[in-house]
Simulated assay, not measured.
Amino acid sequence: MRLEAPAGDHPRDILAALKSALHGAGPALALGAPAGRLPAEVPAGTAVVVTTSGSTGVPKSVVLSRSALTASAMSTAERIGSGAWLLALPATYVAGLQVLVRATVAGREPAVLSGRFTPQAFAAAALTMASARGGVRVPSYTSLVPAQLQTILDAAADDDTVLRAARSFEAVLIGGQALPAAVRERAEAAGVRIVRTYGSTETSGGCVYDGVPLDGTRMRVVEGELQLSGPTLADGYLGDPDRTAAAFPLDADGTRWYRTGDEAVIDDGVLRVQGRIDNVIVSGGINVSLDRVERVVRGIAGLHGAVVIGVADERWGEASVIVSDAPDAHERAEELLRIARDAVGAGIGPHARPSRLVPVEALPLLSSGKPDRERLRRDLA
């Protein structure tokens, strides 16, 4: 089966190629990398190959079949309902791609927010989606990353149109990274119906909603690492059988699992992700989870969007650093660092306290909307 890039970069161009690929009438779709850099042939049944470097900077081309993508869309509809979808994320990112797949499976054209994301553009697109079938309102849905949700909530405090638009959705899926508790509480207080999703490109997007797996998805924790199984799993990594075998092990009974690399616990069937297993530094001979530190830091007023990274430290070997683009981070840097060190020391231990706070004008982001941690590490180095 041939692999081709879409005719253009606009979401509508990607949608047209995606429909052809999902229906089996056209070639597989290459997203995130020019098709010329990838093998011309891909396995039969492939719909999309998504190439992403992620936050670690290591490129990977994930092979997603028609069946995996449609299984994900159908299980989402079973969980939250079916209706009209607004694309507010890059279509080359799996969460944005899935918005297009869900709309296609539902037999509806998605609304598309083109250009730079702003609360006003989001509101304008959302409020044009109102429609009815047989006198009954058609529910609408969208998918956002936490930073977008926070931007919308900030604007909604002074703009009733933005607030009305955010409230108009039957569900707003939030994924891509952990959602700070303070932002979740603000959304709930504002009447915005959010659903926290967990998943990755290797699972065709979110496959666990509010801690509960979608129908067909199974979860287990092996030596602290979360593993997932089900019909939404990718076929593997294009042209990389060794990485595929390592990431997608088979059980003795032939069940295929995906090793997420996330540390997690499952309590009464509800998933709690605790952070990346490999996002750990050794400070003064003690392992420190940067994800745990970041969760504490993001619970502090003024640091909801902060990022915590590890850097070399002459005294301790490695230390954690807070990077923040909050408007008052420059003026309040010492105060915020003191508050953060106290909170982290009380919540985790004195060994985990951040060494400093670095204010920046804007956090560098990947196309997915996630912080570009690798770039931050390079810049601070």
Rank of each mutant, 00 (worst) to 15 (best):
residue 2 R to L: 13
residue 2 R to Q: 14
residue 3 L to Q: 11
residue 8 G to M: 04
residue 13 D to W: 11
residue 21 A to K: 12
residue 24 G to C: 11
residue 28 A to F: 01
residue 29 L to V: 10
residue 30 A to T: 06
residue 32 G to I: 12
residue 32 G to C: 12
residue 34 P to L: 04
residue 39 P to Q: 10
residue 40 A to S: 15
residue 43 P to W: 08
residue 47 A to K: 07
residue 48 V to P: 14
residue 51 T to L: 06
residue 54 G to H: 03
residue 69 L to E: 11
residue 73 A to Y: 04
residue 73 A to H: 09
residue 74 M to V: 13
residue 77 A to S: 14
residue 79 R to I: 08
residue 81 G to W: 11
residue 87 L to D: 00
residue 91 A to R: 04
residue 93 Y to V: 02
residue 96 G to K: 02
residue 97 L to N: 01
residue 104 T to E: 15
residue 107 G to A: 07
residue 107 G to K: 05
residue 108 R to W: 00
residue 110 P to S: 07
residue 115 G to F: 00
residue 116 R to C: 03
residue 121 A to C: 05
residue 121 A to D: 14
residue 123 A to L: 03
residue 127 L to T: 06
residue 133 R to H: 10
residue 139 P to E: 10
residue 140 S to L: 03
residue 142 T to I: 06
residue 143 S to N: 13
residue 144 L to A: 06
residue 147 A to P: 02
residue 151 T to E: 15
residue 152 I to F: 06
residue 155 A to H: 02
residue 156 A to Q: 13
residue 158 D to E: 13
residue 162 V to I: 00
residue 164 R to I: 03
residue 165 A to D: 00
residue 166 A to T: 06
residue 167 R to S: 00
residue 167 R to A: 01
residue 173 L to V: 10
residue 175 G to E: 01
residue 176 G to K: 03
residue 187 A to C: 05
residue 189 A to T: 09
residue 190 A to P: 01
residue 190 A to C: 07
residue 191 G to R: 08
residue 197 T to Y: 00
residue 201 T to H: 01
residue 203 T to V: 01
residue 208 V to Y: 00
residue 208 V to R: 13
residue 218 R to C: 08
residue 219 M to Q: 08
residue 221 V to F: 07
residue 225 E to M: 15
residue 226 L to H: 02
residue 228 L to T: 09
residue 230 G to L: 03
residue 232 T to Y: 06
residue 232 T to Q: 13
residue 235 D to K: 13
residue 236 G to H: 11
residue 237 Y to E: 01
residue 238 L to K: 03
residue 242 D to S: 03
residue 244 T to E: 09
residue 245 A to V: 13
residue 246 A to F: 01
residue 249 P to R: 12
residue 250 L to Y: 10
residue 251 D to N: 12
residue 252 A to E: 15
residue 257 W to H: 10
residue 259 R to E: 05
residue 263 E to C: 08
residue 269 G to K: 04
residue 273 V to Q: 05
residue 275 G to N: 08
residue 284 G to D: 09
residue 285 G to E: 11
residue 292 R to A: 15
residue 299 G to Q: 11
residue 302 G to T: 00
residue 304 H to N: 07
residue 309 I to K: 01
residue 311 V to H: 08
residue 312 A to W: 07
residue 312 A to S: 14
residue 313 D to S: 04
residue 316 W to C: 02
residue 322 I to T: 00
residue 327 P to V: 05
residue 327 P to S: 05
residue 329 A to H: 05
residue 331 E to C: 06
residue 332 R to W: 12
residue 333 A to C: 14
residue 333 A to M: 01
residue 335 E to S: 15
residue 336 L to R: 14
residue 338 R to E: 11
residue 340 A to M: 06
residue 340 A to D: 14
residue 346 A to F: 04
residue 346 A to I: 10
residue 350 P to T: 04
residue 354 P to Q: 03
residue 356 R to F: 01
residue 362 A to F: 04
residue 364 P to G: 00
residue 364 P to I: 09
residue 366 L to I: 02
residue 371 P to W: 12
residue 371 P to D: 12
residue 373 R to H: 02
residue 374 E to I: 05
residue 376 L to C: 08
residue 378 R to L: 09
residue 378 R to N: 05
residue 379 D to P: 02
residue 381 A to K: 07
residue 381 A to M: 07
